[in-house]
Design a protein around this nucleic acid. Structure first.
Length: 573
DNA sequence: GCCGTTTTCGGCCCGACTGTTTTCAGTCG
């Protein structure tokens, strides 16, 4: 049972209670506990065994009992009871923009609508406008919400909005009435997926700025507009929110709009405890004095906190750490001295060894590991021992020509279904870097897959396990694997775990990478680039590492070349 | 349902915008 499963059950209880019209604070209590469980860096089952579930923020005696019931029996009777009262389709209403608990409840109790399809038919037939508190506009808004839900059910990858986000920000910054413009929201927190873009602008002329924003070719339509806030849609269909504030309010607005909502809620609670108030305009005394603030750090400081980097603002312990001045110095892209997972056209990459090496030189990397696939991965033209040996000779010759970057001979060797490796030890021991990973038999059961990966880690030549859960964000779930057990085995066998920087992998995830590093497992952040261009993905891996609270010391490819070579030669001994 | 260097009961984060309303509820972030 994963933390995620427990969190999901608690979230479902919250949603059901909301639809059934339960007390809002009770609903929020379940939501808060769900987030606490999901964000908890350790294993909830461990906590349960130690009878310490209440260490999770928001979990008290009643929820401890329900979580324990879930862990023991696989379900929660209370949840089962609630499910009997609300048809499953009604829960989906909450995913439609514009519909919250109240509306969902009315649609179900008054019109007995039980699915999105029924809701859509009712709205088209004009049945909704007769309900109390509803009208034609709300009916139309619900229909638009259903369209948006169908079209854009999932979130979009961070990498897929990157260029658009900075184009919009730069366009705003170019306008004379704009004193400052910044991206906020989950984009600034570098979440792996994004629902919409948030921008904050400092200006004395909000009307002018909003007119200008609406006229940008990047913006297709404006969906709502008030005095200081505008919502629109980009040509690509992504929602974009703009907020215009005075220069003196910019830092507070940036903090507020960066979120997360949970982080903000905690800050407001802390302000209250200190006899202050914080909102999007700044920090206030109770008698209405607004403290002047230049930058976000000033607001944190007024609350007795050191600065918290956006990537940590998820209410996962960062406020407590900041109160003790214990926010770690997070890793940054400039700490990365090389990439340890690169494919070339020898297997399924696009670039030649020379081309990826040249890119490494341009970036000032000290080293680059060539790690093409092994023979079993026929679809990728995986290398057999003879081709691997020939490739190694070419790499050694290149190393004699190039001074500024060191190419390392490596392989991404398949972990076969039984946990053995796709090359014999005699081949592996000749290499500088051995990465092992799963590319086949994804449907093994949890125990088989877990044993399979652990067996690979027990091989003395395996340095790194790549993309340990196999997930493809938005496309394929992780295979069944006990990642906590894999992490424990990585510690025991001194095997490095990868944060695969490919934007649709980010595997390990932030939560798992934090778990691994907190146990002392070393991490490698690798692009897994299959082209020169894809080597740029390194930055997304670093974002993920920052969200995992990692420092330079946690990550092996921040080491200088000689230190790294020494590490690779000795860590499995 | 949770939580406490004011509290073990009575609070629980704050504001913009929309739509349906004549003063506010619902949604969203």
């Amino acid at each position: 049972m994963k933390n995620f499963d427990v969190a999901y059950a608690l979230e479902e209880i919250a949603a059901l209670l909301e639809i059934l019209g339960a007390d809002t604070f009770r609903v929020n209590a379940y939501r808060k506990a769900a987030r606490g469980v999901e964000g908890y860096p350790g294993d909830v089952e461990d906590l349960a065994r130690k009878d310490a579930l209440s260490l999770i923020p928001g979990v008290g005696p009643a929820l401890s009992a329900k979580i324990r019931e879930m862990l023991d029996t696989g379900s929660i009777r209370y949840l089962e009871e609630l499910r009997k009262q609300v048809p499953p389709g009604v829960l989906n209403f909450l995913a439609i923009p514009g519909i919250g608990g109240k509306t969902a409840s009315i649609l179900f109790t008054e019109l007995h609508l039980e699915s999105i399809e029924e809701l859509e038919n009712a709205a088209r037939a004009g049945l909704l406008r007769s309900l109390k508190g509803f009208g034609e506009k709300k009916e139309a808004a619900i229909l638009r919400g259903i369209e948006a839900f169908k079209k854009n059910a999932g979130r979009i990858l961070l990498a897929d909005v990157f260029a658009l986000a900075y184009d919009i920000r730069d366009a705003l910054n170019a306008h004379a009435a704009v004193q400052a413009a910044e991206l906020a929201g989950s984009f600034r927190r570098r979440r792996e997926t994004i629902k919409d873009l948030d921008l904050v602008v400092a200006s004395d002329h909000p009307e002018t700025v909003m007119d200008y924003f609406a006229s940008l070719p990047l913006i297709a339509e404006v969906t709502s507009r008030g005095d200081t806030k505008l919502s629109g849609k980009s040509r690509a269909g992504i929602s974009v929110d703009l907020r215009v504030v005075k220069r003196s309010e910019f830092a507070a607005a940036l903090l507020h709009l960066t979120g997360s909502a949970e982080h903000n809620a905690s800050l407001r609670g802390r302000a209250k405890d200190l006899g202050l108030k914080i909102n999007e305009y700044g920090v206030w005394s109770l008698d209405g004095f607004l403290f002047p603030t230049e930058e976000e750090a000033d607001l944190y400081s007024l609350l007795g906190l050191s600065f918290i980097p956006p990537e940590l603002r998820e209410n996962r312990g960062e406020i407590e750490a900041a109160a003790k001045d214990q926010i770690p110095e997070l890793i940054s892209l400039s700490c990365i001295r090389g990439d340890l997972h690169i494919h070339t056209r020898d297997s399924d990459g696009l670039g030649t060894i020379e081309q990826v090496a040249e890119q490494a030189v341009r970036w000032g990397y000290e080293y680059l590991a060539i790690t093409d696939h092994s023979r079993s991965l026929v679809i990728a033209r995986g290398l057999d021992a003879a081709r691997l040996k020939a490739q190694g000779e070419r790499i050694r010759r290149l190393n004699e020509e190039m001074e500024s970057v060191r190419l390392l001979c490596g392989v991404e060797v398949d972990i076969l279904p039984d946990g053995s490796l796709d090359h014999p030890d005699e081949v592996l021991e000749e290499l500088d870097v051995v990465i092992a990973s799963v590319h086949s038999a994804f449907r093994q059961d949890r125990q088989t897959m877990t044993r399979r990966i652990i067996r690979a880690m027990e091989n003395p030549h395996v340095d790194i396990v790549a993309h340990p859960t196999g997930r493809l964000i938005g496309r394929r779930d992780a295979y069944e694997v006990d990642i906590e057990e894999v992490i424990t085995a990585a510690k025991r066998t001194n095997t490095v775990l990868e944060i695969n920087a490919s934007p649709d992998r980010l595997d390990l995830s932030d939560v798992h990478a934090r778990m691994a590093a907190s146990l002392g497992v070393k991490i490698a952040i690798n692009s897994d680039g299959h082209s020169v261009a894809a080597m740029h993905d390194m930055q997304f891996g670093v974002f993920n590492a920052r969200r995992a609270w990692l420092t330079k010391e946690d990550v092996i490819n921040t080491m200088p070349l000689e230190t790294l070579q020494d590490f690779l030669a000795n860590h499995k001994k």
